[in-house]
Design a protein around this nucleic acid. Sequence first.
DNA 1: CGCGCGATTGAGTAATTTCAAATCTAGTGG
DNA 2: CCACTAGATTTGAAATTACTCAATCGCGCG
Lengths: 190, 190
Amino acid sequence: MNGADILQAHIAKMVALTPEQHAAIFDRFTPLSLKKGQSLIHEGDRVDSEYFVLEGCLKSYFVNDEAKMFILQFAMPTWWASDYQALYSGQRATITVDCITNAEVLKLSNADREALCAAIPAVAHFFRWRTNRGYVALQKRLLSFMNNDVKIRYEELLQQYPELYNLVPKQLIAAYLGVSRETLSRLYHP
Amino acid sequence: MNGADILQAHIAKMVALTPEQHAAIFDRFTPLSLKKGQSLIHEGDRVDSEYFVLEGCLKSYFVNDEAKMFILQFAMPTWWASDYQALYSGQRATITVDCITNAEVLKLSNADREALCAAIPAVAHFFRWRTNRGYVALQKRLLSFMNNDVKIRYEELLQQYPELYNLVPKQLIAAYLGVSRETLSRLYHP
DNA sequence: CGCGCGATTGAGTAATTTCAAATCTAGTGG
DNA sequence: CCACTAGATTTGAAATTACTCAATCGCGCG
């Protein structure tokens, strides 16, 4: 399945559009082929775009003063990634987005998104829905963070994305779960 | 300032509307006067509305099997609250929203929101912006949760809402910060 | 006055961290 | 095919931190 089809299927799940509208939407996106390790957004950058993942896996993360990494999101196919704080506010990026594996993504600029939303109300509806979905997912994660111990959070993550298990290094999983890699390791080697 | 004015000022910060449009929007909201302790959404309920706070303070929280409470949000004036997972998906509420103090709120049903968004594109834009803002705030909180210790998180919260200090019991603050009340107490009585 | 809720304090326990070292593994070049 | 290296993972031990449980304190209100 090519990029246009994947994007179309993703949007069509939420709103009904004509083929012409789907084509007009896809026109605004720029396909990018990325190598493992390449970065899309780096701390300190100006951010004017977000990215829709077609293939591969990205991570978005924050690095603190002691060089400790905290992963906000593993972006798998059909997920979106950016530094939304920077994208919406115009401030410089505080988080970094890069490729865990080779990846195919579609880039959409802020301006193009707004143009699409203005031209096609259903697209505005789609993006509203998408952010709602992200908000709910994030809230669920925060709750799990407060409520559950690491082991349960680890199982939740693997249940949601079984492919992560042998796609990303365990230390990145640990950085997502908010524990040290040693603690994660000890969970399964008692 | 009355409810209509507060709502109008809140929306006008983001999108430009005519007085007639503001009036049409306010028409869809139902004002409610609530007493301290009253609940708007209770775990297990069907949820068909969200709430805009005019005055007072709400909390939205989750209670786990061991009756431990985790506070997702203190909803202060001009913030919105609901169980968005339930509201958007139609599933039953897993979180509860109730009043920490007497409160004045405006209720908006899902159907009325969608009707407004469909009738006035700028309103759709407003809600898209609002959810984006909520998403970014939540992401910031998750990061702070992973990165900072309780003391810093406590200071961040009080810096954002100084009035919380003598508005809500310390145990609720602890439930927001994700620590036991004893630990929070010891922070400032070493 | 005394009740009840919230806040504080103490002591022991459990979980996680850090630091250091050992082990494993995949990929590279000879 | 093998040796080597870099990165990733595992393991150990000590130190830290937060938790639980229990008891006490403080204060506002009937």
